[in-house]
Amino acid sequence: MDVLIGAGVLAATIRLATPVALAALGGVVTERSGVVNIALEGCMLVGAFFGVFAADRTGSLPAAIAAAVVAGILLAAVHALAAITFRADQIVSGMALNILALGLTSYLDYQLYSTTGTPSTIPLVPNVHLGFLENAPVLGGAIGDQSAIVWATLAIVVLLQLFLFRTVPGLRLRSVGEHPRAADTLGIDVRRTRYWAVLASGALAALGGVYLSLSVAGSFSDNMTNGRGFIGLAAMIFGRWTPVGALGAALVFGYGDALSVSLQGVKVAGVEFPVQLLSTIPYLLTVLAVAGFVGRSRMPAADGQPYESEGH
């Protein structure tokens, strides 16, 4: 059945999973260090906008991506300041920054591009054409023509998995999220580590945003991330706070999302499924997958808890 596992569906799965995966990776990094960052949605949104904005102003793709990532890092830095330095409520701070990001990007888009739209000539992230796969069945269609950011995401997953679980700095980061007191005793700077982790999460989420604006859409529109930062948080939990797991979870979600398109107009036993209900597939599929295969997961022990060093 092509509508279930055809090359087109698989390619769509990968495309739709990528932004969710990047948000989820950001979530993994920050929560492994013990900071909850639900401002990932906002980081994606500023990444999406400032990517387009910089592409328009500079005409340079690297500059655009750099600007997007910097924007995501800056927003995350505000969260880090609130969550780590001021020990603010992390969820409220994250929500505030999401609203801020939505208001700011919509405001700027309206001021700059309301009548003309974002320019159609901005440089976009190119797709990577794998010529040697051209004639391969399924595989060629599925991965033969994906955005460069898709491949970058895959690389980030591998590197991040290795970093977190195979390197000393990765171990330190995780220990800060599990036993900050013990880590502190061992001479690890808990706050500094958490700062870096939160900033990295902003960068990763912003990359997800710039994927949406400069690879998928080629333009910015209000709230174009449409909740993917939150789906990413769910994917992070689903993936048990590991990069590889997060990718897997994002792929499950992306597959459901792809099905909601590919099954449109398909008749089963002469009956066509209402198109509105098809759109529930990714959400139901995700819950079923977690309930059926993943089950209980354990969050980092000190997740969401501000740390106050002894001497403070």
């Binding site: 939150f230 769910a234 939990i237 959400y283 995700t286 819950v287 977690v290 309930a291 993943v294 209980r296």
Partner: peptide, 12 residues
Amino acid sequence: RGVNEVITTIMQ
């Protein structure tokens, strides 16, 4: 089933 309520409620 041990499904984290954050996942379920977002999806719901």
